[in-house]
Write a protein that binds this DNA or RNA. Structure first.
Lengths: 195, 195
DNA sequence: GTCTATACAGCGATAGAC
DNA sequence: GTCTATCGCTGTATAGAC
């Protein structure tokens, strides 16, 4: 069956999300209009509502998909020793976040623009990710491999430190991502008191 | 000379800045209208323009004053040993930032809403603050007190870690600020490889 | 599925009375 | 110094033609 002229099912949708991602990260959610997103895609503003019920859903879906992918990939088997799992976490976190600067930026900066219900969902996903690290730290502390006074603080401190890479790292800069990973692994290993 | 009714020179100005600070931190700069700020102060929107030439200047001044105060207080004399100065930095940073959550939040989150000229000024102030820490680390490394591979990365990693406290710390919570300072000092001391 | 047109509210900023 | 009133514009979202 011939397609109607101007029909782009399965093409425009992803382009809308990609345009929203880029613009939200660059200018901030509240500063981006639906007209601006539509212009980036090459359609009129009204057409966007074939792909999202409203503007906030666009933001929420970007965050949710990002965090679900993060959780899907953040699998550090409990069979390995805690030091190895911690090293895997550090490397994974840095690389995953360096690969998705726009998504990471939005997921941290635009939480205020979610409804309470959507906010709670996003926070729950983030909490599940933090728990992956906390479990590693707790296992290591129990086995005497790490010397940690408070695993919750250590968890938040490590994540803040690692996520901070995104504020300055640029591919092609002074340091390669391999070097960055090595340096942060050094710092984390020392911070948890591992040999 | 009798004051004109409704005249509040020297009173309304600070109240405007305080209302803007609170609302910007809570809802985000772009989501706050001049009318909302005026309502919080208890005046009409037009009256705000007696105190600021425009909305962006309000944001810029809040950031600039915050960072200038940070720099004014962040004085760690070069006479003491690097380990003592680093400890002072860690304690100062955590306490100063915990005292001003709204200012800190704005100064990190709303940089995108500044004109290029204003952005450059704010970034220069922040850079001067980072240099205070980097100098301490460099001195310590030179003297062999610290074992640091790259002082620039260590600087950014420490600041990210310490500033991250603001995302979760609440006065009256499980931990006192004294305990938080002690824990982070432990982590930083280890991370720089100090005895 | 996209268009044009539009409803309706809100925006930053200014002018002029008091 | 604050008010009221207003300008010109932009915002999200919807309706109906094609």
């Amino acid at each position: 069956m011939a397609r109607t002229t101007g029909s782009h099912a399965g093409i425009t949708g992803p382009r809308v999300r990609q345009a929203a991602l880029r613009l939200f990260a660059q200018k901030g959610y509240a500063a981006v209009s639906m007209r601006a997103i539509a212009a980036e895609v090459g359609v009129q503003a009204g057409a966007l509502y074939n792909y999202t019920p409203d503007k906030e859903s666009l933001l929420f879906d970007l965050m949710r998909v990002h965090l679900e992918e993060l959780l899907a990939q953040a699998d550090f088997g409990a069979e390995a020793d805690p030091l190895t799992r911690l090293r895997q976490f550090v490397e994974f976190h840095i690389r995953f976040h360096a690969d998705r600067p726009d998504e990471v930026f939005i997921a941290y900066m635009e939480l205020r623009n979610l409804s309470p219900e959507n906010f709670a969902q996003i926070e729950a996903l983030r909490r599940r990710y933090e728990d992956r690290l906390e479990t590693i730290l707790r296992d290591g502390a129990k086995q005497g491999v790490f010397a940690i006074e408070d695993t919750k603080i250590m968890t938040l401190a490590i994540i803040a430190m690692l996520t901070g890479v995104n504020t300055w790292f640029r591919s092609g800069g002074r340091l390669s991502l391999d070097q960055v990973v090595a340096q942060y692994w050094d710092m984390v290993r020392r911070a948890v008191g591992a040999e």
